[in-house]
Design a protein around this nucleic acid. Sequence first.
DNA 1: TACCGGCCTCGACCTTTCGTTTAGAGTTGA
DNA 2: TCAACTCTAAACGAAAGGTCGAGGCCGGTA
Lengths: 213, 213
Amino acid sequence: MSDTAVGIGQMVRDLRGEFPDLTISKIRFLEKRGLITPPRTASGYRKFPSEVINRIHEILRLQRDEYLPLEVIQDRLGDWTPSDMKRTAKRTGPFTTAELAREADAQPGLIAELAKHGVLREGPEGFTNLSVDIVVAAQSVLSFGLEPRHLRTVRSGAESLAASVRGRSEALLRSNKPSSEGQLGELLQSAADSLSELGAAVAADELSTLSQP
Amino acid sequence: MSDTAVGIGQMVRDLRGEFPDLTISKIRFLEKRGLITPPRTASGYRKFPSEVINRIHEILRLQRDEYLPLEVIQDRLGDWTPSDMKRTAKRTGPFTTAELAREADAQPGLIAELAKHGVLREGPEGFTNLSVDIVVAAQSVLSFGLEPRHLRTVRSGAESLAASVRGRSEALLRSNKPSSEGQLGELLQSAADSLSELGAAVAADELSTLSQP
DNA sequence: TACCGGCCTCGACCTTTCGTTTAGAGTTGA
DNA sequence: TCAACTCTAAACGAAAGGTCGAGGCCGGTA
């Protein structure tokens, strides 16, 4: 859509839905620590285009969900800094198979394998940056000796979730004013997080049977 | 295999190989925080049998490799303290349906529903504290408009993972000395974490299709 | 023009986490 | 007996992660 670069106050209000104790001073603090570098207006006001907001969202998520210290978050996010973002200017960029493999530090064969089993899906323009997350996570799971075909169930679980959330969110869209772009994203994120937690809880339970064979 | 319970000094020297800046005072600190409870001699000296040493090893690893704060480590390790589990089998206690509902702040009907669809399973002695996690997470997912039956796929995904990890971990157990109790727990936790991440990544990807309907 | 809310910087300050240090006293083994 | 080891309790402290307030600059608007 349009180049919606909001001010610091508005941005914080937007993110408060998911991170209730986010403050303006925390954002400034994150900049001082070098985790974000929002552009400025001529007069020195910070501007927040969506790439920066996404990055902030990811920083806060890593802090909240994975308890990572800011220094580690900085290392981990180091690659796709704003300057890198600008390299792919228009979007966070579709990837070809080869690019995706390089991006996720994986073998191209694995990409094909994951795609074959429906864990990964190539869009009309190629793979997205979400695909990178999937490949990285899949490699981690595969390191326990699983085969890609075992991961199909994960995809179908996600599909089931998506189908239901879709119905739900359309109702939400209808009943709300069109400004719910942000709300939808929020809903999506919450749903994904919830599924993640449920998956972790069920897996822990399932795996606990290993303790007493 | 003999009852090798060493003193605090010797134990610290042993672990210094892997954790060079481990100190006696840090061990005492961990006890004060409730992360370990080493038994004592008649005169009050701490003794460190291998279970406790394994637990300390795991605590230090989580701190070093996953940057987890001690409070989170305590939560995560709380249940499966190898020896604690057997001794205090009553405390972490099995729950009845009613108790589980109260514990997870849920309707008893939901418990039944989840059990019916295989998301939740009642053991021979009732529900466990892992069941509480599942119910809590499930409520969160259900708040997006899903029905319990949609969650079956989550369970089957977890089963698939468990089956494979089981094979993997048995091999690990065979090939290692019997002290790998801690390693098994570590493997389990890592596997659950990995699945969780994959689930989140795939769900995020799947849900991103909602953005352009 | 004056005003008001939003934003700016900078430095002081605060809280929590994760320990270390110190003082004083008891324990163990050669 | 002596040196090395261990105990507790409390004070101390460094680093992470912010918060707060003073003093001043923007930007609509009445």
